[in-house]
Amino acid sequence: MVQAIKPNGTLRFVTIGSWAPVNIPAHKVRVRNRDGVYLPAIITSIPPHFMTAEQKKAVPKISDMAIDVGATSAEEVKNQFKIDIGAPVVPDVRFEYLDHRDVMLGKAFDNRIGTACLADTLRELDGQDLDVDIVASLSAQEEVGERGAQVTVKKIQPDLSIVFEGPPADDTFSPEYMIQTGMKRGPMLRDRDTSIIVNPRFQKYVLDRAGAKGIKAQRAVRTGGGNDGAVINLYSGAPTIVLGIPVRYAHTPYSYVAFEDYVSALKLTVDVLKSLNAEVIGRF
């Protein structure tokens, strides 16, 4: 988000959510002006010709970065580009499906991929006779305090909950025995992170369903991260699981998701929801 407009026409900004400063410089972004038009821009960086030896080694600070929309003065930014303080900024990345690898490349899969899986779950179950009522919700601002989920859970008051996530994959840097969110290994069912310990009986039920149906799945015990399931537990006490579709390079402008992981997550969710009734839920 734009925090201030500098005299030279560049924009000081703050990040929303969890961004690592090393992933930000020199990337393309788009800034929304007061007319709703997204203008192309670049995150500034000092050319290597002008860097000191210390600057080349140092981790950049967000407070030292800026956004350049191609202007030369604050007046130009405000009057011609029509950009105000508070303007939203997003990475300028196009979604691609790479069919030769069966992977998707794009931005914000945490949690666009969960949103897509939620929508497809509703499509798959549309018109079917179920023993439970399905309510779907999208909650904003999970990255800055699970604020939207607090409103959602109070309105829905669920008896049971499945939280879709786009968790960071760990298969490109972890030893094999520690890989718990690997790409093309199926959806991840998280046992624990810093915000939640999931319902163990519901977790086992879903994992057993995956095994019986031959759907690949993996489970994870995390020492970091959080999700909206924590809010559901806090405000409703409903048995909750976290079903994640692994995202390589989450919280950067470019991420990979394997389409087969997406399909597996969808199949598993649909199967579980079809199998539920009051008696089954009562056992959790």
Rank of each mutant, 00 (worst) to 15 (best):
I83R: 00
S174R: 11
K78P: 01
H100I: 06
A140Q: 11
K267N: 04
G17A: 14
Q55T: 04
K28G: 15
H27C: 14
S161P: 06
K216Y: 12
D228L: 12
I162E: 02
P168I: 09
D102K: 14
T72L: 13
V206D: 00
M178A: 13
D193E: 03
A217K: 02
V231F: 08
A71I: 02
L243S: 06
T44R: 09
E279H: 11
Y249P: 07
D110S: 09
T72C: 13
I156A: 06
H251W: 10
V37F: 02
V206M: 04
G86E: 02
G211L: 03
E146W: 03
Q3Y: 09
N33F: 00
I83W: 01
Q180W: 01
V31W: 01
L118R: 07
A71W: 01
A71L: 04
L118G: 08
D191K: 14
N233G: 15
F95G: 08
D99E: 10
L138F: 11
V272W: 00
E124I: 00
S275L: 03
V93A: 13
P187N: 01
L125T: 02
A250R: 08
L125Q: 02
A265D: 02
L276E: 08
L11D: 03
Y235H: 14
R30T: 15
R94K: 08
N199W: 03
Y256Q: 08
A71G: 03
M1D: 12
V163R: 02
D193N: 03
L160Y: 15
I134S: 14
Q203D: 11
R222S: 15
N79T: 01
F95D: 13
K82C: 00
S275P: 04
T72K: 14
L39Q: 03
Q128F: 05
K274Q: 11
S174K: 08
S18Y: 05
V151I: 10
N277I: 06
E76K: 00
A140K: 07
I134D: 13
N33G: 00
R283T: 12
L98E: 09
M65D: 01
V221W: 06
G186N: 00
L268T: 00
D35A: 04
S174I: 02
P253K: 14
A220E: 10
K155L: 06
V14H: 06
A71C: 07
A71P: 01
E75L: 04
A220T: 05
D129I: 07
A210Q: 00
S139V: 04
E146C: 07
I156H: 03
P168R: 15
P158D: 14
V263S: 09
K78V: 05
S139L: 12
L130M: 05
F259G: 08
R222H: 06
D64Q: 06
S18T: 03
I245N: 12
A210P: 00
S264L: 08
A71D: 02
V144S: 15
A258T: 09
V231N: 14
M183I: 12
T223A: 13
Q55C: 12
A149G: 10
I245H: 11
V90H: 08
T172C: 14
Q218E: 08
R192T: 04
L105E: 05
G145M: 10
P91Q: 12
I215S: 01
V89W: 01
Y256T: 07
